[in-house]
Design a protein around this nucleic acid. Sequence first.
DNA 1: CCGTCCTATGTAAGCGCTTCCACTGTCCGG
DNA 2: CCGGACAGTGGAAGCGCTTACATAGGACGG
Lengths: 341, 341
Amino acid sequence: MTQDSRRTDHGPTIYEVAERAGVSIATVSRTLRGTGPVAPETRRRVLEAAEALRFTPSRAGVSLAEGRHAATGIVFPDLSGPYYAEVLMGCEEVASELGRSMIVLSTRGRSEVPRLVRDLAGRVDGLVVFGGTVPDDLLAELAGGGHPLVLIASAPLPGADLVAAENHDSAVRLAEHLVGHGHRTFTLLGAGDGSDIAQRWRGVTGVLERLGLPAGAPVPCAFTVEGGYAAGRELLARTGRPDAVVCADDQIALGVLLAAEELGLSVPADVAVTGWDDIMAARHARPALTTVRQPMRELGARAARALDELIGGERTGSRHQTLPTELVVRASCGTHPLEEA
Amino acid sequence: MTQDSRRTDHGPTIYEVAERAGVSIATVSRTLRGTGPVAPETRRRVLEAAEALRFTPSRAGVSLAEGRHAATGIVFPDLSGPYYAEVLMGCEEVASELGRSMIVLSTRGRSEVPRLVRDLAGRVDGLVVFGGTVPDDLLAELAGGGHPLVLIASAPLPGADLVAAENHDSAVRLAEHLVGHGHRTFTLLGAGDGSDIAQRWRGVTGVLERLGLPAGAPVPCAFTVEGGYAAGRELLARTGRPDAVVCADDQIALGVLLAAEELGLSVPADVAVTGWDDIMAARHARPALTTVRQPMRELGARAARALDELIGGERTGSRHQTLPTELVVRASCGTHPLEEA
DNA sequence: CCGTCCTATGTAAGCGCTTCCACTGTCCGG
DNA sequence: CCGGACAGTGGAAGCGCTTACATAGGACGG
């Protein structure tokens, strides 16, 4: 039981390299990290020994001595759908350039999120957190505890950076486009958990109100294809079906498309449908989905960079960045002049 | 310059907890980890102190003392498309259950892959590696160096576990289904990098040969929508267009669908198209894509578990696991009796 | 009542690395 | 020639934690 099984068989240590090269460990360290002066001949011997032993410094040792992890954590709900995956990629790429590893933590379906997040916080220099994944009080505790924190698509938090895509104005553009198609009765699908969605709805209803058009409260709906399908079936089957269904994200919209098809309704002739995010399937659906593209990769990249600044202490005050989105007009919102030609 | 900026302001140490509780650090450690006996009253004081200080053990300290990282690394090419993302999720979930963090490394577009992988290997207890992301000699070096290694969808490597989805037989089923639709001339799109794709093609060509049908060499093609689109334009425009285009993955197939649409060809009437993977867009494309679904999440989960066994030393010999796939018949491969009814 | 076991706790030796400091030569400018 | 600057190196003190080992009281059977 007290055998050796407690540890993985680690590689050679700096002592072995030092011995083989006939120098002290200090010299090995200096040589390998390029700090401090080393005689050419010594350097050669050290490098040779390190090479021969395939020496890689123990990360734990380095971390402990340096007092930093050279790693950043990222907390997201799930990786299904391209949104989070893309953000993660953007983040990972920049982090890697900055010499940091990325540790991922998904919260979907997890019961002990606070414990997992605390644990994660303990092994990184800073955290990137998606809105709605971690309880606010825990975030506040972390920020208060001096943990550099960057929030993505989330409500602002004192002491933490925030990176988000523009929501309100994009929604205004989308709504105006739909109104331009002649649509008059709208239904918003996907009640807003998080300020993100709420901002979009404010943009849409603002346009409608200005035009004196009715704008009911958003209809609750799971943010999945199945959720959109179920809600779509219900919504489109009843009398007084809306002209246009504006969905909180593409997955919901795809579900609505499925429901419309099944009900024998034509999109966009009978009903217009729009999404949000521009995931891959949006382009390939028929009719292709009109949606709003978010700069997902860029969101991640910005978050990684902001975190690096926070960690490096180059900046103390928190900063909020809002990235522009792009309205992607496809077939699902109505027939376009160009296509008629 | 030599100021304090070199380290993040870390939280309280075990010493502070010990002092506050009026005990030694050994007792704190024993209390918190539940090793060794502790008097109830002492336990209470320690927990209280730890709570008050919001103490979280420094991961680097723990790692160094324990001689393990409680983390596993995963190397994948990219997270675009749901395939890798799903596998990652499956992996992360199991790893988390086993008390390990997941550190991700994406290789796409990276120049210094070997250095990055070595660095990663230094901060984890074991690695999960997707086929085609890391040079074979580096893998061999890692395996030889005692690093637990699990390969996914890759050529086998001595000393490493392998987890893969079944390829050959699934391809046979797919080909037989297509032949059943009356298709006779086939083109395989996406020349195989990696034994994975090669196995699929062997399955398909095997069926064709048995029936005396021509089966040319797979046509090279980038594994992206754009790649499939470009190849599809070229392929479908020429005289002697095939009955069926069997694509190496769904993204290619989606591109071919786009090309067919643009050329005014009807799928499946003029040409059948099939994919592989069953990504989300496959279901929503019109015609919906016939494809082969891989148990992506399960692949990741198995990999994580296998790695844990390897790390724990519960097993020394390497093991190969092959997971079954599912043929998903949709509209793109031909008209089905049920749909005709 | 004493030797023996446990329980409960402290002591201290690392884990592998970075880096401050001290020390030894060398090389120059004065 | 001499003092000083500096290149080149080793010694040793941690970084925060785990854990073998030592120690000190009881409890308890004989």
